[in-house]
Design a protein around this nucleic acid. Structure first.
Length: 818
DNA sequence: ATTATCCGGGG
DNA sequence: GTGTACGGATAAT
């Protein structure tokens, strides 16, 4: 029979000396099926300077170990493949099972023969070789065993669509899971503290199970008799729901390992995965020895840890303080967690079960947030899967280097490129000690400026790498020795497009295409296109970092150094040409430059941009970011030069853009944040007098004692056990008071306090907001430690000293504009 | 300044 | 599982 299916999870098994991949798939009608497909195991050995016949003879006799079978070479064939830009001879060596590969390769390397592609995961190899892209359509042909639901495939064909046309399906069954546990002092103790609740959330499904009975009308709450039964019931619900995707938030590090541990203690068989193929249908907790990270695999279900994906990939430009569920749900969904005092959960459990209902709601709400996040991010995860060819399980756990490398590996096959080996320990430490010159920064002269035109190079680094053919394969070719890089001793081939830069060029062009399509798309199509564009952007932007990453197979520090060298060259050249055209430059960093129009018009600036663009190669392009009537650059601490990446711009529509000012930091009072923001606003609007009046008004209110207390609260996080602090800052002092009052204080919590009136050290005057009366704060502290640091550097630019602002109304006005 | 360690997420 | 690990902030010689 011939079927069309969508694969979402993969595993392999060795049966009677043959290696099979099990692909867990969904059919168009929604039912599931397992596709079993045989695939060869192989790796390569270099034949350079090797006596091939002697080598083959030794391979024929090679046998290593006994468990589970002796590792053996089944077959071999010679192949010519490209390594670092040169075609070289290799022997493709077939092994009897995947784990045999490292054994055989190690032995062969002992013979002095280099082995390659010996550490590529078998599943990944299979997916790439077969051209299968997880979550998208494949065609399979074979015979189905109705008892096991396994289709033994004679052939598995990937979709005939081009990558840009590939579509996943919209009806993946997602189930999100979250647990609550017993915890007296916020400790996490798998061994001693039971799981109290499990929340499950999916489409048309919401359930929270607990094992302490209380009266409730809530039909979504369900009671089990014990933790053991809770675990059994949870497994049963998951089996019934039968999700393709099981999602959690930090479920690799918490929820699933916790469930796993409690199942062992309670002797529960948490069998939610597939039982026919691999034999292990429970949670497979993989703890890696070197790092403290764990992964939990379930055969036949794609377990996604949303936290890992957000933390490592998606959160890149999210601008959040923390990657906890509350912050991420707020940012991406506009939804907060429910606020309950979890410190009281154990008490309610032991003494007051009637209070447990709110915790159940809280638990289910977290599961719901996780579900919504999964739904929201699934298009992006699927696109990363399409680009890299990796299962979603891997996609959600990868980092940038893995993203780039998987993309390269996938495309290496069709171009007959062999992957260079990963660096060894020695090589890694050597690479870690190397460094390159970074970006060019033109430091701003502090001041308030008029009429700025801001330009930047669109994806500067990727376009440089692609346009100038930078990469390990094109380095030091014999034909282009005379074409060196600005200030660098390197050269790269200009005749033949090298492997890496050509991949990057392909990416850039594909993204340009997609951006065009987005303009005409709507609805779900648009969502998918935007996810594609996003994934391509992230990938393209990661190439530069990859080339200089010590763990990269295609490491090339020369290429990375040349990329920044070109970037410095282009931005400096732009600055030079701008000055020649009569503009003044006030600031520039990496890929952007801020020009002063100085009487010229925006049209002149646009003309200048066009003339620059005519001289640029390839995909490189200078963009007009915008015209800004005012721009403020303040001085770096204790220095005359301007601070980098710290400025405020006024837009034409009156709104403004602030970069680098510390207004967002937690340990500033609301007062400082507000005053800083207002002062910036007034100054950008040329209302320096109002800015002054505003600050002075705040000072006056402070002194009068009428400043609302909530604007004076300072928040500081407790980062360790209180007893561990050697230096007692104000927050620790307050923490001691809280403990004295019987409140629990532990690492991670944020202490709020206000500095009160009185004498002595600052910390001795730190009060809990609840124990201070209106007006009883120390206004001197707030003036000198909050207001002055927040605004003095801003006023300094305009020629006002601290005294001018904070002493009685002295008048002073220096030249406002440069 | 440079090196070691701790922590993130989770209850 | 054909596998190896991070990276930023903060504290400590």
């Amino acid at each position: 029979m011939k079927l069309t299916v969508y694969s979402y999870d993969f595993e392999y098994k060795v049966e009677n000396g043959q290696v099979f991949v099990y692909s867990y798939c969904k059919q168009p009608n929604g039912s599931k099926i397992v596709v079993k497909h045989q695939h060869p195991v192989f790796f390569y050995a270099s034949l350079e300077n090797v006596d091939v016949n002697e080598f083959k003879r030794r391979l024929d006799q090679l046998t290593i170990g006994q468990i589970p079978w002796p590792a053996k070479v089944l077959n071999y064939e010679e192949a010519a493949l490209e390594l670092k830009g040169q075609i070289k001879p290799f022997l493709k060596i077939y092994a009897n099972y995947p784990k045999a590969v490292p054994l055989l390769a190690k032995e062969i390397q002992n013979w002095g023969i280099e082995c390659l592609e010996k550490d590529i995961l078998f599943i990944h190899r299979y997916l790439r070789d077969a051209g299968i892209i997880p979550m998208t359509q494949i065609t399979v042909e074979g015979t189905l065993d109705p008892n096991t639901n396994i289709l033994m495939a004679a052939a598995v064909e990937p979709s005939e669509l081009k990558p840009s046309e590939l579509k996943s399906r919209k009806d993946w069954k997602i189930l999100a899971l979250d647990i609550e546990t017993y915890s007296k002092h916020r400790e996490i103790d798998f061994q001693n503290n039971p799981i109290l609740m499990v929340g499950l959330y999916g489409a048309n499904f919401a359930k929270v199970i607990t094992w302490k009975k209380f009266d409730t009308a809530d039909r979504e709450i369900e009671f089990a008799a014990s933790e053991k039964e809770l675990l059994e019931r949870t497994a049963e619900y998951i089996r019934q729901f039968s999700p393709e995707i099981l999602a959690g938030y930090f479920s690799d590090g918490f929820d699933l390992p916790y469930i796993h541990a409690r199942c062992i203690i309670n002797k529960v068989n948490f069998s939610i995965g597939d039982s026919f193929s691999i034999g292990n249908s429970g949670l497979i907790v993989r703890k890696s020895s070197a790092s403290r990270s764990t992964e939990v695999k379930i055969i036949g279900i794609a377990h996604l840890d949303l936290f890992k994906f957000v933390k490592q990939i998606f959160g890149l430009d999210l601008k959040v303080e923390s990657f906890n569920l509350d912050a991420i749900a707020e940012k991406l969904l506009g939804l907060k967690k429910q606020s309950v005092n979890l410190d009281k959960l154990f008490y309610s459990w032991d003494h007051s079960p009637v209070d447990l209902e709110q915790f159940c709601r809280y638990n289910l709400h977290d599961a719901r947030l996780t579900y919504l996040l999964t739904e929201k991010l699934l298009p992006e995860m699927i696109e990363f899967g399409i680009i890299t060819g990796l299962p979603l399980f891997d996609v959600t756990r990868m980092r940038f280097s893995r993203l780039v490398e998987s993309y390269i590996l996938k495309r290496a096959i069709s171009r007959k490129v062999i992957a260079p080996n990963r660096p060894g320990d020695q090589e890694i430490s050597e690479r870690m000690n190397e460094s390159i010159q970074g970006a060019f920064v033109y430091e701003p002269k502090p001041g308030l400026y008029r009429d700025l035109a801001v330009f930047d190079f669109r994806s500067l680094y990727p376009s440089i790498i692609a346009s100038h053919n930078l990469g390990p394969e094109s380095l030091y070719c014999s034909c282009c020795k005379n074409k060196t890089i600005p200030d660098q001793p390197y050269w790269f081939c200009q005749k033949n497009k090298a492997f890496l830069p050509s991949l990057l060029a392909e990416l850039i062009n594909r993204r340009i295409e997609i951006k065009k399509q987005i303009k005409e798309a709507s609805g779900q199509d648009k969502t998918v296109l935007e996810a594609q564009s996003y994934a391509l952007k992230i990938l393209a932007n990661s190439f530069y970092g990859y080339l200089g990453f010590y763990g990269a197979r295609w490491y090339s520090l020369e290429s990375a150094a040349s990329t920044t060298a070109y970037a410095r060259y282009y931005i400096k050249d732009t600055i030079k040409k701008a000055e020649e055209s009569g503009f003044k430059v006030c600031y520039s960093d990496t890929d952007s430059c801020f020009l002063l129009l100085g009487g010229k018009s925006v049209t002149d600036a646009l003309q200048f941009k066009d003339s620059i663009n005519q001289s640029l190669p390839g995909n490189m392009e200078l963009n007009f970011e915008g015209y800004f009537p005012r721009g403020l650059f303040v001085a770096a601490k204790n220095q005359d030069k301007g601070a980098k990446k710290k400025y405020a711009l006024l837009k034409e529509d009156g709104s403004f853009k602030i970069t680098g000012f510390e207004t967002v930091r937690r340990n500033w009072s609301l007062l400082a944040k507000e005053v800083q923001r207002e002062v910036l606003r007034f100054i950008l609007q040329d209302q320096t007098d109002k800015a002054l009046a505003y600050v002075r008004g705040a000072v006056k209110d402070l002194k009068k004692g009428i400043m609302p207390l909530e604007k004076l609260i300072i928040k500081t996080q407790i980062t360790r056990e209180i007893s561990q602090y050697k230096v007692v800052g104000p927050h620790i002092f307050v923490a001691h008071k809280m403990i004295a009052k019987g409140q629990s204080v532990s690492p991670g919590m944020v202490v709020k306090y206000i500095i009160g009136k009185g004498s002595g050290l600052v910390r001795e005057r730190a009060r809990l907001p609840s124990e201070i009366k209106e007006g009883d704060y120390d206004y001197n502290y707030y003036i000198s430690h909050q207001l002055i640091p927040a605004v003095s550097s801003i006023f300094l630019v305009l020629g006002y000293s601290e005294e001018d602002i904070f002493k009685e109304s002295s008048q002073k006005g220096l030249s406002q504009f440069h």
